[in-house]
Amino acid sequence: MKYQLDKHPIDQVGVEERVARFNSRSIKKQSKVQAIKLAISMLDLTTLEGKDSAGKVRQICAKAVRPWEGMEDVPSVAAVCVYPNHVKTAKRALGDSGVKVASVATAFPSGNSTLKIKLEDTRFAVNEGADEIDMVISRGRFLCGEYDFVFDEIAAVKEACGEAHLKVILETGELDSYQNIRLASDIAMDAGADFIKTSTGKIEPAATLPVTLVMLEAIRDYFYRTGKMIGMKPAGGIRKEKEALQYLVMVKETLGEAWLSPHYFRFGASTLANDLLMQLQKEATGYYQSLDYFSID
């Protein structure tokens, strides 16, 4: 396929104005409780640090299955996201809880390695038991206009994933323009992504509402064209319940009911979980709990 940058022009002012409209919707009381629970169920609880250890991974797995003991019917999160060498630990810790294990791969976070190593990395994670692979695209090659290279790389990783479900990280903070983000989304979906994801969390800016809107609109166009539903994962920088709910408003008004589900929408975050729990508690009791009551993992 021949990719062209100007195939889908994106108007920056228009995107940002639309986002401002989403932020004025009213979410409170029952509507808020429902949205917070939905957001918890969409979390990819993430630890991606050089100092990660088996103990640390087990801790976040415990949190993933039962985010908080303080309240009834708090759902489990969608997945735990770790480096490939921690997949086995996570898999064991999560057992049959239904919480998935996602693993970053393909020379995360820069993606600056050979395809051979990237595929090895992917196969290793899958063999260790990863249900989902979060790959990074080669941003340098993309910005050089080598779109076919980017496509082929994603397609090869998709093949290496086998049964595992592929999330493609565009690292939007490095892509410079909404138009680039749109094109990268199209390439990723065409090449076999099950999900498209904004960021690694290692680059600022990470996920933003306008970037996510551009990607959701790309998903919508892909759905119109093919009937296939692709998932969306904003990751990095979403720390507050209020922001998370703004993302849900955007999903609701852009892609509707079918995407308001952990199968098609995820939040890549770690500190967001406690804010969601704290707000949930506040809705139930009318008071804010001390942060000391929420586990820091």
């Binding site: 009213s26 808020k32 939905l38 759905f223 093919t226 009937g227 609701k252 892609l255 509707g256 308001l260």
Partner: peptide
């Protein structure tokens, strides 16, 4: 049949 998006969502805004 064209793929159709369903905007009648289970989650509703709070009246304000």
């Amino acid at each position: 049949q064209k793929p159709v998006i369903n905007f009648k969502t289970d989650w509703q805004y709070a009246s304000a």
